[in-house]
Structures are given as structure tokens and as C-alpha cells.
Design a protein around this nucleic acid. Structure first.
Lengths: 205, 205
DNA sequence: TGGAAAACATGACGAGCAGCATGTAAGTTC
DNA sequence: GAACTTACATGCTGCTCGTCATGTTTTCCA
């Protein structure tokens, strides 16, 4: 029990706000975007519909806020794990593992739901694009610091290839594809990436 | 104007049935799964709600049928283009292009909508999985025939890597990512694939 | 040619949805 | 401690959805 005898207004505000946003993410992950209703979110956040009405004027605004909340979380998660990467060939493999871990978790599942929904919802799309691009660029920067010996152009290529491959694999995982095959594919890609890394660093053009 | 003075019952049945399924796919592509309602589908197919009621007992059944219809179309499309592939290194690059073309078109967009929806809808999921697996296997077979000199194990790896990368790129395209970068990434991947292909064929382990 | 059956249309029903109006409790300010 | 503001709850309204019951048209068959 959280004995909240006295909470300042700012505390109350932020508390229910994050509760709502977390509940929204949970909803996206568990029931999908199509069935994510305001009522469901309220039920999970243990608040009334009036509360969400007070904090967000419309559902779209809630979703937009959820996108930012979500991205912030993902960013923190990735940053924390990417900070302690070894450099060199083993670093490349480790980075790929981390990217896979990041893009295959529940947070990324929620992002995918929003992405697909945003394709046919211009408002949501406008909210997602800048935030997502910022996440991509920030992650790229951290990754390229690991593989500093590589020409930045090639490091970027490797990064984006990994990200897109990982997203494809995450999609496969969502539908219940064979986990063993995914592991195999990821191992193979790591092998290829390390090989390319070594080629580029030992014999620069 | 299609002057349909006399249509046999079977013709009528099949005609409105495919009209409904095509309309469903259009709906998925244009407004997304969340807003794909029976009414929307009926409006596009120029039929009443009673018609869909007559052909499909529930909406889930319509969706399941749409999945199969969709997969059949995709299969035909891929088969037609994959049939006339050159073999060898240039064949590998061409195959990648074709897979990209297949997985980035409107049909694949509809599939993605259904995929993501199926993640949280067991019924839809059960309908999708076998059909999708069959599509994957069939495409794999056709592709491996092109790269016959490659050890089947490695050809399969290359295929699945390409498919998953392509799906990730397709997702990126849906949100309006930079087309130029996608082209760049695809070119890079083709280079890598051809390189791996040559390595494997000239110096088998 | 008439009647059975299939294909389709029309209208209605209950459920769930988002948004709003209004009421109540908790914190702030003086 | 009383007026005031912010944070939240409750209940309603109009709408859309999927489904169903019933009517109408078209084809088939004897």
C-alpha cells in the first residue's frame, strides 16, 4: 500500500499521467492497437475516464504522448546497454545482440503497433516520425562510437542493415515463427558483419 | 458496363465473393485493420451487409478468407517474376530485387496489417500461420532453384536473411522513411549477398 | 411455367466506443 | 480557514460497430 497522505499537485499530476501512459503501452502490447480503448486504459491505470479527459483533450493526444513516453523508455534501455560495449570485432557482434534485444522486447512490440497504425493515421504519424528519427540517430551515434575504426559511412550501413533485419525478425517473432531459425539467422548475420568489419579495417580502400 | 443479363449461380457467388475479398484487401491497405469494418468493405464491394452475412458467418471468417485470397495473389505474383531469373551471381542480385518488389507492394502491406492484428487475435493467427508458412516455403523452393550451385543450407540462410531484411525495410517504408536510404541499403545488401555467394561457390568448405 | 432454392437487400437490435457536462475531493494561496 | 484552483469521478449522448430476422430478386429444375 502506498500511503499517500499528502501529495503535491505536481506529484499527483505526474503520477496519474505516467500511470495512464504505462497503461496505454501495456494495452498496446496485450490487446493491440485496434482494441486499445480509453476505457481499457482507464481500467488498467485505475483511473476514471474523466482523468484522461483532464490530461489529454483527445485520444490521439494520449497516443502521441504514449509514443514519446515509449521512445524515452526505449532510448534509456538501449543507452544503458550500449554504454558498456567492447570495441573491435567482438564489439560488433555484441552490438548486434543488443540491438536485437532492444528491438525484440515488449517496448518495441508497442512501437510496431503504433507504427502500423500510424501508416493510415496522419495525426499519429506526425507524432511518431520525429521522435522515431531522433531515437534512430541517437542509437546510431552510440553504436558508431563503438566501431570507431570503421569508416563512418560503412558503420552506418551496417547499423541500418542490422536495425531493419532485426525489425523483420521481430515481426516474425510476433507471429510465432521458429525461434531457433531466428537465432540461426542472427548468428549468421553476426558472422557476416564481423567479416565485413574486418575486411574494412584491415584493407581500407 | 458489364451487361450481366444471365449469370449462373456459381458465377454470381464467386463474383461477389472475390469482390468482397478484394474490397477487404483494399480496405486493409487504405484505412488499416483497425478501421476495416464490414460496412466499409460492403460499400467498396458495392454489396449489402446481407451479402457478406450470406457468404461468411462472421467477420473473422471473412478475414480468414481474405488472408488466403491475399496469399494466393502474392504467390502468383512472386512465382511469375521468379520464374524467369538468371542463375549465378547476377541471379542472386535479381532475386533480391524481386523479393523486395514483392514484399514492398500493396499486397504485402495488407499482409503486414493482418500480421500485426493477428498477434493479439488467436483466431486470425491460426488462420494466417499455415498459409504464410506455405508461401514462405514455396518461395524458398523457387529461389533455391536459381542458386542451385550453392549449398542448400547457405542458400536458405541468404533467402531468410533477405526476406526479413526486406520486411524491416517495408515497415520503414510504410512510415515514410527515406527512400534513398532504403535503396542504398538494398544495394549494399545485394553486394554482400553476391560476395557471399561467390565465396561459397568458388571455395566450398 | 411454376415453385423451390440460392443470392442478395433492408431494417432493427444491443454493445461498445469517444467525447462532453456536471459534480466532488484534494491541494494551494492568502 | 476560506476562497480558489487543480485533479479526478460519474453519468449521459450520439455514433458506429457486428450480428440477426425478415423481405426481395435471381437462377435453377422438373
Amino acid at each position: 500500500m502506498t500511503e499517500t497522505a499528502h501529495r503535491t499537485q505536481a506529484q499527483r499530476r505526474e503520477q496519474t499521467r505516467t500511470a495512464l501512459l504505462d497503461a496505454t503501452i501495456d494495452c498496446l502490447v496485450e490487446v493491440g492497437y485496434a482494441r486499445t480503448s480509453v476505457q481499457e486504459i482507464c481500467a488498467r491505470a485505475r483511473v476514471s475516464k474523466g482523468a484522461v479527459q483532464h490530461h489529454f483533450t483527445a485520444k490521439a493526444e494520449l497516443m502521441a504522448a504514449a509514443v514519446e513516453h515509449l521512445t524515452t523508455k526505449l532510448r534509456r534501455q538501449l543507452a544503458a546497454s550500449l554504454a558498456e560495449l567492447p570495441s573491435g570485432g567482438s564489439g560488433v557482434a555484441a552490438a548486434i545482440d543488443l540491438l536485437w534485444a532492444g528491438y525484440s522486447g515488449t517496448l518495441s512490440t508497442a512501437v510496431t503497433e503504433l507504427w502500423v497504425a500510424a501508416r493510415t493515421d496522419p495525426e499519429l504519424r506526425a507524432a511518431i516520425r520525429p521522435v522515431d528519427r531522433a531515437l534512430g540517430r541517437a542509437t546510431l551515434e552510440q553504436v558508431t562510437q563503438v566501431a570507431g575504426e570503421l569508416p563512418p559511412e560503412r558503420a552506418e550501413m551496417l547499423f541500418w542493415l542490422t536495425v531493419n533485419l532485426t525489425r523483420g525478425l521481430a515481426l516474425d517473432a510476433e507471429l510465432g515463427g521458429d525461434p531457433a531459425r531466428r537465432r540461426q539467422l542472427l548468428e549468421e548475420w553476426k558472422r557476416i558483419a564481423v567479416l565485413l568489419y574486418q575486411d574494412a579495417t584491415t584493407a581500407p580502400s
